[in-house]
Design a protein around this nucleic acid. Sequence first.
DNA 1: ACTATGTATCGTATTTTTCCGATGAGTCTT
DNA 2: AAGACTCATCGGAAAAATACGATACATAGT
Lengths: 109, 109
Amino acid sequence: MKTDTALAALAALSHPTRLEAFRLLVQHEPEGLSTGQLVDASGLTQSTFSTHLAVLAKAGLVKSEKRGRQFIQRAEIDALKGLMLFLAKDCCQGRPELCEPLLAELACC
Amino acid sequence: MKTDTALAALAALSHPTRLEAFRLLVQHEPEGLSTGQLVDASGLTQSTFSTHLAVLAKAGLVKSEKRGRQFIQRAEIDALKGLMLFLAKDCCQGRPELCEPLLAELACC
DNA sequence: ACTATGTATCGTATTTTTCCGATGAGTCTT
DNA sequence: AAGACTCATCGGAAAAATACGATACATAGT
């Protein structure tokens, strides 16, 4: 994952509304949720949430698929994976010993 | 890791200057780097970089230790670990099967 | 065709972030 | 004690993010 991509993903997830939406979408993999359901869950205006969604989409964290007259939003697990790998490489590259405890904790889930 | 902590960490890392500084500090674990060295590497003004550093510190990603008249900055690997666990739990909790490929890739480092 | 529905986009006001120079508070050297 | 050094913080300007209502556009149902 390129640095710019990681930066966009970090920025996208650094907002409460967007992080919550993304987590919600991850929980609803692989069926996804319609934009309207996400708007309802957010408690925000439709237009405001739409711009948030656009940020997530631009960062590659969410993909939408048109179904009828609504859009089904789905979390891009691969993008999350890519972001985590990017972060992990910060400590793993050159310093593998720093990451072993991390991997041990991750293995628990 | 609490959601607010994760949000602060994500926001802190979502800026090019701060991400680069953090990666630099991780590479220099456990000796750390002085604030001045980080300023030089950033190419920014001392004051501007200082505010960036404060963001990283507030998010718990960097700890500083006074040594003589300079401050030695060190990356808080545990905070990074916590953030990665936070992100991992998004997909692992309830959906362990989504994380297995992630763990496989992480194991490579 | 007409109307209702679901969502994106535009325009804009408010807030927040980001950047800088200047200043201030410690610390070392002489 | 004086001067040089390291870094944080303040004040303010410029840029970006965030929120909203209004509008536009496509699709579904009648």
